[in-house]
């Protein structure tokens, strides 16, 4: 009966909150350097082996995407959310006009921005390091955006059962392992078909696959040469994009069921 309940998410309020969360992130030098420097750590790998090696390229670029999801987004959003909750900032904000969704998005946006920035910077660096120009740069961009949203969702789900900012060092592990299993294990040749199938459904494997298809134009896990055209990459990107989308929906649903806004009494 009330039109007030229908009121929509306010983009301007969300951006306002994001702006101040960015100020806070910049004032926390340690968190800021984690967010901006860590994701770029895999890039020097490009200088280690044969110049232009696609194996190295996939590891390095996939690594940037994974670390951009894990550090500026997942770990940063998790610790910001938990420490704001401990400081009763979230409870205070919720007494005002700010809606829960705006509060959550406002915390995630600075980290998402850092992640997308490092992914963008990685493109010219990788090309300068001898890697091929991406076959479908849009797919890489889409993958980066979806990855950041997915890891923000993982952060809120993890925050629901994280007691304090210190505890986040431990409670962040399940997601870190879940995300890392694909890039680290998925490429091993000795895996059985079933195991490979299962691993391909993890978030990290989907991200690696997106890099193989979107950037390198590789068709299948054994491919070592670029065979796909720009148009063909879209078709093969469907499964990894869907996997990431499903993880995002699952994480958001789990987060919504168990969300806590103030410290445990």
């Amino acid at each position: 009966m009330s039109t007030a309940t229908m009121e929509r998410f306010s983009v301007s309020r969300t951006l306002h909150l994001a702006r101040w969360n960015t100020v806070l992130l910049v004032r926390n030098r340690l968190a800021l350097s984690y967010a901006l420097v860590f994701p770029l750590v895999p890039l020097p790998m490009l200088l280690l082996g044969d110049r232009g090696s696609s194996t190295l390229g996939i590891s390095a670029i996939g690594g940037v995407l994974l670390l951009a999801g894990l550090f500026p987004v997942f770990y940063n959003v998790l610790s910001q959310f938990v420490s704001r909750r401990d400081e009763l900032v979230l409870k205070r904000m919720r007494t005002g006009e700010t809606k829960d969704g705006e509060l959550l998005a406002g915390i995630a946006l600075p980290g998402i921005l850092c992640a997308l920035l490092t992914c963008a910077v990685a493109v010219p660096i990788a090309i300068a390091g001898g890697q091929m120009v991406p076959v479908n740069i849009l797919l890489f961009a889409l993958g980066a955006v979806l990855a950041t949203v997915m890891f923000a969702a993982f952060a809120y789900w993890t925050a629901a059962w994280t007691r304090s900012a210190e505890a986040a060092q431990l409670t962040s592990l399940p997601v870190i392992v879940l995300a890392s299993v694909g890039p680290f294990v998925g490429g091993l040749p000795a895996l059985s078909e079933n195991v490979r199938e299962a691993i391909s459904l993890t978030p990290g494997a989907a991200m690696t696959e997106l890099v193989r298809v979107g950037w390198f134009g590789f068709d299948g896990f054994e491919a070592t040469t670029s065979t796909l055209s720009f148009a063909e990459t879209w078709g093969l990107a469907g499964q990894p994009l869907l996997v990431m989308l499903v993880w995002t929906v699952i994480a958001l649903d789990l987060a919504r069921r168990s969300m806590r806004w103030e410290p445990r009494a």
Partner: peptide, 28 residues
């Protein structure tokens, strides 16, 4: 005249709350 949970947005515009313990980011 409204439900503070279901009519949250409408109620919040017209109310001011002070919680028992203050909650602010110390760095601002």
């Amino acid at each position: 005249g409204r439900n503070p949970v279901t009519d949250r947005a409408a109620v919040r515009r017209r109310t001011g709350v002070l919680l028992q313990r203050s909650g602010f980011s110390g760095d601002l």
